[in-house]
Amino acid sequence: MLDPLLLLALMGVGLLAGFIDAIAGGGGMITVPALLAAGLPPVAALGTNKMQSIVGTLMAAITYWRRGFIDLHRLVAAAALTFAGSLLGALTVSRLDTSLLDVAVPVALIAIALYFLFAPRLSDADRAARLPFGPLVPLMGFAIGFYDGIFGPGTGSFFTIGFVLLFGLGLTRATGSTKALNLVSNLAALAVFIPQGQVVWPVALVMALGQIVGGYVGARTGIRYGARVIRPLVVLVSIALALKLLLFP
C-alpha cells in the first residue's frame, strides 16, 4: 500500500512536469527522478513515467489543436512514421550501443539552446520553409521517434527545433505540432511497456491527474504568451537536460 502523502506529492510533481512539458518539453527531467526516489525500479519508473506523461501531452495537444495551432491533416503521415520509429527503437534498444548518445545528445541540446537564445527572428509568425513539409516531416518523425524509443531525453526540443528551423513554423505552432508527435511517440513506447507489466498503475493514475491540470494550464500559457515564454523555457529546459545528462547520467 502506497503512502497517501507520497501519492499526493507525486501528483504535484505531475502537475509541475505537465506545465513545463506543455510549453517546452523536458517534463521527464522532473518525473523520472521523483519516481526513482519514490522507490520504483528503473524500468518501472520509465514505464510509469510514459503512462502518466502521455495524459498531460494529450491534454496539451488537444488545447493547442482547439486553438488552431495543430494542423492534423498535415501531420497524419508524420504521426504514423513517428509511431513506427518509436516502436522500432523501443523493441531494438537492448541490441544497440547507445553510449555515443551520452555525449552527442547533450551537445545537441546545448546547440538548440544557443540557437533559441541568439536567433534574432524567432517569433510566432511562420516563415519560409527550408525543406518541403509533406515528404520530409514524416522522415523527421521517424528519426526522432526512433531516438525517443531508444533513449528519449530532449525529444520535444528536437521536434521543436526541426519544425522551426527546417519547416518554418512559428514557435507556438511548432510547439503544438511537437505535442502531437510526442503523444504518438509515447503511445508506441507504452505498447512495449504495458505488456511487460512495467507500469505501476496507482502511481501513474495519480500523477496523470496532476498532468491533466499542468498540461492544460501550460498549453494555455504557451498560447497566450507565445514566443515570449516558449523561447526562454526551451533554452532553460535544453540546458538543464544537457547538464543532467552530462553530470548525472
Rank of each mutant, 00 (worst) to 15 (best):
A125H: 07
G152L: 01
T57F: 02
G176M: 09
I23N: 05
G156W: 03
L246Q: 10
G85L: 05
A227V: 11
D148N: 06
F146A: 12
H73K: 15
D148F: 06
L245C: 03
G149T: 07
V234C: 05
G170C: 05
G156E: 07
T82A: 14
A108Y: 03
I23L: 10
A191G: 13
Y147K: 04
V213D: 05
A128G: 13
N49D: 10
G149F: 00
S238C: 13
T63F: 04
V184I: 14
G25Y: 08
K244E: 10
A174N: 09
L88I: 05
A9Y: 14
L2A: 14
G170K: 03
L16D: 04
L166H: 08
P41Q: 12
V103P: 03
R95K: 14
A143N: 02
V76P: 00
I20V: 15
L96A: 12
M59E: 00
G222K: 06
V164T: 10
V103D: 08
I161K: 04
A77K: 10
G162V: 08
L100S: 15
R121N: 15
I223P: 00
A22W: 05
S238F: 00
V164Y: 03
A17Y: 03
V217N: 06
P132Q: 08
A77F: 11
W65C: 13
D71R: 12
A219Y: 00
I223D: 00
Q196V: 07
A80E: 01
F133G: 06
L136A: 11
L2C: 08
V103W: 10
V234D: 01
L2F: 14
L36R: 13
Y147R: 02
L8W: 10
G12V: 06
V199Q: 02
L72E: 01
V55I: 14
V107G: 12
V105Y: 00
A125S: 13
T178Y: 02
V217I: 14
